[in-house]
């Protein structure tokens, strides 16, 4: 058996983290993307820039500030302590928060592009056909933006799986809680277990390839929508 139970536990944790992060990102990313694609407000520029920050910042920078704010002396840490939750650093919940921030642009940007491509006309048509705003969202925007949602989910999931720096900064390396695949590979290498590192690293390469393959072929077939 090339993979140890610790490896499997890291894989399971990674899948759990990436799935939860993707779901949360779709829920909070959709309104942000919708707003960014429709607004003419002055805030559009600054908000867009903030959402895109994780694209250019080193993950350690994000991790460092998250560590500070979620720690016992940070604002967010004091808030979670006041709620009776303790601090979220070195916990799975902390990792989820970090991943959501880290992968935000990978979900918001494809959604924003999809919403912009729809334009305002279908929404106006829906309104003149008696559909209210929520109805229009579910019966017109969602189906027309489906390719955007597929892309956003795949990118959000895959990018979270590929996360390393942020995890190490705020999550550390606790088995079953914060030790994800990328950290596990790092551990194997540190311990000179190259064969085991190979299995996991190779699996990641195969995974990434198939994710991107799915993405590019789905884009091709989804072209028919417009």
């Amino acid at each position: 058996m090339p993979l140890s139970s610790a490896d499997f536990s890291a894989i399971w944790l990674t899948i759990k983290l990436a799935s939860l992060t993707t779901v949360i990102l779709l829920v909070i990313g959709t309104p942000i993307a919708l707003w960014l694609s429709r607004t003419r407000s002055w805030w559009r520029g600054p908000v867009g820039a903030i959402v895109a920050l994780p694209l250019v910042l080193p993950p350690t920078v994000i991790g460092f500030y998250l560590l500070l704010s979620m720690g016992p002396n940070g604002y967010f840490g004091q808030f979670t302590q006041w709620l009776g939750l303790g601090t979220l650093t070195f916990s799975f919940a902390g990792l989820v928060i970090g991943s959501v921030i880290y992968s935000l642009p990978f979900v918001v940007q494809p959604l924003q592009n999809a919403f912009s491509a729809i334009g305002t006309r279908p929404l106006e048509v829906a309104a003149t056909l008696r559909a209210g705003p929520w109805d229009t969202f579910f019966s017109v925007i969602l189906p027309l933006a489906r390719p955007g949602f597929v892309t956003a989910s795949i990118l959000g999931f895959a990018h979270t799986v590929g996360e390393f720096g942020v995890v190490l900064m705020i999550g550390g390396n606790i088995p079953d809680k914060t030790r994800v695949v990328s950290v596990q590979i790092y551990d194997h290498v540190e311990a000179m277990e190259y064969a085991q590192a190979h299995w996991l690293a190779g699996a990641m390469v195969v995974f990434a390839f198939f994710v991107l393959l799915a993405l590019y072929s789905s884009r091709k077939t989804n072209m028919g929508w417009n």
Binding site: E124, V125, A126, T128, L129, A131, T136, V140, L144, W225
Partner: peptide
């Protein structure tokens, strides 16, 4: 607008691309 009992025909028909003709007609 969605509470006004009006019909609106746009210059370009602006049919919903994700729906069949029948579903477009049934929408309103």
């Amino acid at each position: 607008p969605h509470q006004r009992p009006l019909g609106y025909v746009f210059q370009e028909a602006s049919l919903f691309a994700h729906l069949s003709v029948r579903a477009n007609l049934a929408f309103g």
